[in-house]
Write a protein that binds this DNA or RNA. Structure first.
Lengths: 141, 141
DNA sequence: CGGAATCCCATCTGATACTG
DNA sequence: CAGTATCAGATGGGATTCCG
């Protein structure tokens, strides 16, 4: 079942404009998706909307709603509404969401771990770049 | 060295607005980054600009340049220029790039594998959504 | 509490033209 | 070949207001 062979051949499909996986990646490769997945993954149980909002510093209500909706639509997040007053809405990863959450969290972990050297690389790059840009001779206006 | 403990505590830093990892993730979680990393990872050797462009269906020259530049700045991609005529420019993953490429490629693979059920989930979700939206009573406008 | 709706600006992205 | 420069349109994303 799990054909490890033909792996690269499959991956190549991603490069095609009409590959369905592109629409999936589009959802995953977005500003807040990775954080939301990581946050939901930390918890044992589900999380409420405002808990997520407080946890994810800087996210707006609109973006959180939008991100959660997209993930719910894709079947990665399960949303449960308790018709109480005030309303109580809980979010949890589906099995699919747990799977992909493992992958995205690996990226988050990696980013934390290697942030120092990457920031270093940026400083070097930027320094050289600005050195390379010579001002135009005044004649050019 | 590799402190597997304190894992979650570290990850929590990602949620903070000023965590450096956020700027790293910002580069990775972008429309074309994942594809470029995957493409460079397939090759044993480096790839030329137009080879990449042809491989990644739909990417424009501008976006490819921009994405490669960002990855180079972060030290994930190494750019080599051969001062010939016409010029020859080769791109290859750095060691850091190979590392992160493994992680992003895992996501691409996963997306390909699960695209069918995710698309299914979307269809179901969208069908219910449109069913839930009742037209307003004419009296309202 | 958990949103929806609206406004609005910033950036992202693509198309096009030009260059060493 | 491998870009840069520029412009216009689409989209992303934030702030605010309002609602069940």
């Amino acid at each position: 079942m799990d054909t490890e062979s033909g792996h690269d051949a499959d991956l190549a499909r991603t490069y095609r404009r009409d590959c369905p996986s592109r629409t999936v990646i589009e959802v995953l490769a977005n500003k807040w998706t990775l954080y939301v997945l990581a946050a939901l993954r930390r918890q044992d149980g589900p999380m409420r909307f405002n808990d997520l909002r407080r946890l994810l510093e800087g996210i707006t209500q609109k973006m959180l709603t939008q991100t959660l909706r997209a993930l719910e639509r894709d079947g990665l997040v399960r949303r449960t509404v308790y018709p109480t007053v005030p309303p109580r809405v809980e979010y949890a990863l589906s099995e699919l969401g747990v799977e992909v959450g493992r992958l995205t969290t690996a990226i988050a972990d990696w980013s934390i771990e290697h942030a120092p050297e990457i920031l270093d690389s940026r400083r070097t790059f930027d320094a050289h770049a600005s050195a390379d840009v010579r001002p135009l001779p005044p004649a050019y206006t």
